[in-house]
Write a protein that binds this DNA or RNA. Structure first.
Lengths: 135, 135
DNA sequence: CAGCATCCTCTAGGATACTG
DNA sequence: CAGTATCCTAGAGGATGCTG
């Protein structure tokens, strides 16, 4: 069965439940991954456990506020785990949970598509923007 | 090479360019797919060409404003094409371009992960929310 | 029908300062 | 070090009404 048909029939299924956000996996699960930072954080953790400060430095333009928030969401969804070491000063380590690791494959596929398509998209944008907005 | 290692080394590459949003495909390409509706629209078009009104109806809670905007972005990025039929009243058809169709495979993989993980995520959320916020 | 234009709301997210 | 608390702004996104 082709990708077209597989996705088309999934979409039909979702439509039957009126795309109810609480039951449609795209809307309930993927939307969460789709904010500005979450994907980046997951990928950063692919290399192994990382401490809060490390993550903060490895993603230069994220704010502590957003990093904390994204980490909490990922933890809540069971994609990562949080380990506190009661040293002084405290140190906290984040690592991918099994569920999070299982995302790396699918995510990798998508990222390879993004890399392969990057230039095509840039070209398309130039072409589109070259067309005068109307006459 | 494992998914972990592949993604980890990609991340290292991106870091070398300081995750420059204009050159990092995740930030430049995927971020665009990550708004509330774009993914759903692409999937809706997987079933074949659709008219504006059809799309509007098949995604019940999208507004015309947002539908127009997402379609423009997708067109600009070269993922879909727009075909105007000069009938009266006018009818406009959207369909996946080759580039857009090439996304269906990777997207399908991710969606299968989302479906397979949906329940685990819901369980994790319940568990997390069951833990009192502190004492 | 397919869409702009306008107005309005709400939240993602940045900046900064403070704490155990 | 790893956060929280507070404040603030930009932009995502909804509602409604108008037009070729």
């Amino acid at each position: 069965m082709s990708d077209e048909n597989k996705l088309a029939s999934k979409f039909d299924d979702w439509q039957r439940m009126r795309l109810d956000p609480t039951r449609c996996p795209v809307r309930n699960v993927l939307d969460h991954l789709s904010d500005k930072w979450t994907t980046l954080i997951v990928i950063a953790l692919a290399g192994g456990p990382r401490r809060f400060g490390e993550l903060n430095r490895s993603i230069p333009d994220i704010s502590k506020r957003m990093l904390t928030q994204c980490l909490r969401n990922l933890e809540r969804d069971g994609l990562i785990t949080r380990h506190v070491f009661p040293t002084s000063p405290p140190s906290v380590e984040y690592r991918l949970a099994d569920l999070g690791r299982s995302l790396l494959g699918p995510l990798g596929v998508l990222i390879e598509w993004a890399e392969a398509s990057h230039q095509s998209v840039l070209d398309a944008r130039l072409r589109f923007d070259g067309i005068p907005p109307s006459t």
